[in-house]
Simulated scan of single mutants.
Amino acid sequence: MKIVRTPFLILLLLASVSCQPKNKSNKQEVAQKEESKTHMATKLSAEQLQEYETAYFASGCFWCVEAIFESVKGVKEVYSGYSGGSEKNPTYEEVSYGRTHHAEAVEVYYDPNVISFRQLVQVFFGSHDPTTLNRQGPDRGAQYRSIAFYKNEEEKKIIQDYISLLESENAYGDRAIVTEVTPFEKFYMAEGYHQDYEKRNPNNSYIRNVSIPRLNRFKENFKSYLKEDAH
């Protein structure tokens, strides 16, 4: 089993670059909503998605996390959204500004005949720093905390066993793993324009300076896990 011994997400000293929303003009908002409708129409249907298993993770800005899991073989679809809180129907503005108890999270649809839940857990820990409390890179707040969600006792054990392995191997030196191991309850889909955000907004400053470098570090260390077109 591959263990990554160094954190991948390096804190960038770019105060103006973050995953939090910026004020938009009405024209920009209208254009964004129209683009979202077109893009969401290309996603797999609910009927098609029923053929696959699901897994849920939170490890910082969901733009980054979605792109990472999308690059993994056996993963059929990934959605950005919100989970881990009790508030109903949260919005991006509410979550990103810490007005709820939710974290930015992803919903991963995968084929267990190609990739296992254990391997997805490995991807999760290998693509972010699980020792930074309520922070990933330039994004700070509980909404960016590290969470591995489980749907049953078997998944819980897989997560806990992998954390124990990382600790026994001293993977992060004297830094403690602060990832929450939390029972999955509800996933709220994020607004349409967040889906595949990195892929559709390559020139966004956050994407260029934080998200793409994070994805590339993951790819360099998990080459055998990548889809053919992700190399």
Score class of each variant (00 low, 15 high):
148 A>S: 10
92 Y>V: 06
23 N>D: 15
53 E>I: 12
63 W>T: 01
163 I>R: 07
121 V>I: 14
84 G>E: 03
66 E>K: 06
42 T>C: 03
148 A>K: 10
62 F>P: 05
129 D>A: 06
166 L>T: 03
42 T>I: 11
136 Q>L: 11
191 E>P: 00
44 L>T: 08
122 Q>G: 09
117 F>H: 05
116 S>G: 04
114 V>P: 01
189 M>H: 15
225 Y>Q: 00
190 A>E: 01
37 K>E: 02
58 A>D: 10
43 K>A: 14
131 T>P: 00
87 E>N: 04
176 A>L: 14
96 S>G: 14
176 A>V: 15
136 Q>W: 09
142 A>C: 11
124 F>N: 07
185 E>N: 15
29 E>C: 07
108 V>Y: 07
217 R>C: 05
56 Y>A: 01
225 Y>T: 00
18 S>H: 10
146 S>P: 12
89 N>T: 01
210 V>S: 12
113 N>D: 11
190 A>L: 06
31 A>N: 03
129 D>K: 02
180 E>R: 14
18 S>V: 10
119 Q>G: 03
201 N>E: 08
41 A>H: 03
206 Y>F: 11
149 F>R: 10
182 T>E: 12
191 E>V: 00
134 N>K: 04
165 L>N: 11
14 L>R: 11
157 K>L: 15
39 H>S: 08
111 D>N: 10
187 F>W: 12
103 A>L: 06
117 F>S: 05
112 P>K: 09
117 F>I: 02
195 Q>P: 14
139 D>V: 04
192 G>M: 06
190 A>F: 15
11 L>I: 15
171 A>V: 08
63 W>D: 00
131 T>R: 00
123 V>T: 02
175 R>N: 10
49 L>H: 06
204 N>P: 01
169 E>G: 04
220 E>Q: 14
9 L>T: 09
118 R>G: 13
71 S>K: 04
128 H>D: 04
125 F>E: 09
102 H>S: 07
127 S>L: 03
118 R>N: 09
48 Q>Y: 10
139 D>M: 05
118 R>F: 14
71 S>V: 02
112 P>A: 07
102 H>M: 06
52 Y>A: 13
92 Y>W: 04
86 S>Y: 03
45 S>V: 13
224 S>F: 02
96 S>D: 10
170 N>V: 03
86 S>M: 05
77 E>F: 02
138 P>E: 02
158 I>D: 14
54 T>W: 01
139 D>I: 05
212 I>M: 08
47 E>T: 13
54 T>F: 02
6 T>K: 06
64 C>F: 01
153 E>T: 06
229 D>S: 15
186 K>L: 01
13 L>G: 10
127 S>R: 02
61 C>G: 04
8 F>H: 15
217 R>V: 12
88 K>Y: 01
26 N>L: 11
162 Y>F: 15
26 N>R: 11
80 S>V: 13
41 A>K: 03
183 P>Y: 13
23 N>P: 15
168 S>N: 09
60 G>R: 02
99 R>A: 14
216 N>A: 05
37 K>L: 03
226 L>N: 05
54 T>P: 08
163 I>P: 05
227 K>V: 07
63 W>H: 00
43 K>N: 14
75 V>L: 12
21 P>N: 11
59 S>E: 11
